[in-house]
Write a protein that binds this DNA or RNA. Structure first.
Lengths: 169, 169
DNA sequence: TTGTTTCCTTTGGTTGATTAACTAACCGAA
DNA sequence: TTCGGTTAGTTAATCAACCAAAGGAAACAA
């Protein structure tokens, strides 16, 4: 019985599946994964956002965002426009082509997860959620720092105070 | 209470933690993630293996492995030796320096998971394992030969029918 | 006004990946 | 035994995605 190894294997399968889906998704939309991520975030933010916000959310430097937006602009997926309120800022907006491309890339992984998840019994959903949050806490150093000793009772509250507004899969 | 959303968020945190960890490794001790992965696999295989096996396991092309092994050899972490049984083959072996470096650059993320996991009660381990395997099955129906090395980079034994082996989230 | 900070781009890299073309070695069948 | 096909690995050219450092320009604070 090697539960630790089996758990690691399961975890890795989850990561691997996500990776593969991300790639399929991107090729369905005709862009690379990183560019698709930019477009998804722009869409999620209501159609426009700034390079700064993109860099923060994606966890990369602004220089990287400049490069990605350059390519997306050349592909006609987004366009830049100077902010009227702060002329240092640039607004990155989806073009109609960009929106069309996004539509062609439905989030298959998320859809599949949601479909399967909602088919589960109530108690199964609760257990899965609790387990996932626990694993997330185990891997996410910020939570470890915040509460170094995890107890069963701590599971419920350990996502509160999580500032980082991250996207779903 | 939206369990589906919360589960997706937890999943995303798991992916995110892995992603960030891999990047952090790059800045630590000069060991880049891809090179470390090569060394881990060589170690796992008992101290030596071939470029072909590395390419298959990591899901990248042989040319990529050549490049990585080149750099590792230049760094003095591995060395090449022609196989005696098949002179087309090259054996990639860890040097003493390589072994030392592996010890010094442990897989912090995996270690953290293992440490936390093994601190859990027996029934908690069982529940976590069952949940992880369930999620893995939900996301990935394929049968992947996964080894217990927790990295985003793929380890896939059977890449047949997989035309485009890329990596990196 | 002047100095500082913020937002973004430019420049000049590195890493990790690809494909295509090539060499060398093995292997099976005529 | 030698020819043709397959396999293993390297080389070369290229690309995507990242970064750090060094700006420019606008906003802000003193």
């Amino acid at each position: 019985m090697d539960r630790t190894d089996d758990s690691l294997i399961a975890l890795r399968r989850i990561l691997r599946a996500t990776e593969l889906y991300e790639r399929d998704l991107a090729s369905a939309a005709g862009v690379t994964p990183a560019k698709l991520r930019v477009m998804q975030i722009v869409h999620m933010k209501g159609g426009w956002t700034t390079p700064k916000a993109l860099a923060t959310q994606m966890g990369v430097s602004q220089a990287t965002i400049t490069g990605l937006v350059d390519k997306l602009a050349k592909d006609g997926m987004v366009h830049r426009a100077q902010s009227e309120t702060d002329r240092r800022q640039v607004n990155v907006m989806l073009t109609d082509d960009g929106k069309t491309a996004l539509d062609r890339a439905p989030d298959a992984l998320q859809q599949r997860f949601v479909r399967e998840f909602e088919r589960l019994e109530d108690w199964e959903q609760a257990q899965l959620l609790s387990s996932l949050e626990r694993v997330a806490a185990m891997l996410d150093a910020r939570d470890i720092d915040a509460s170094p000793v995890l107890t069963v009772g701590a599971i419920e509250k350990d996502t509160h105070g999580h500032k980082d507004p991250r996207s779903k899969i």
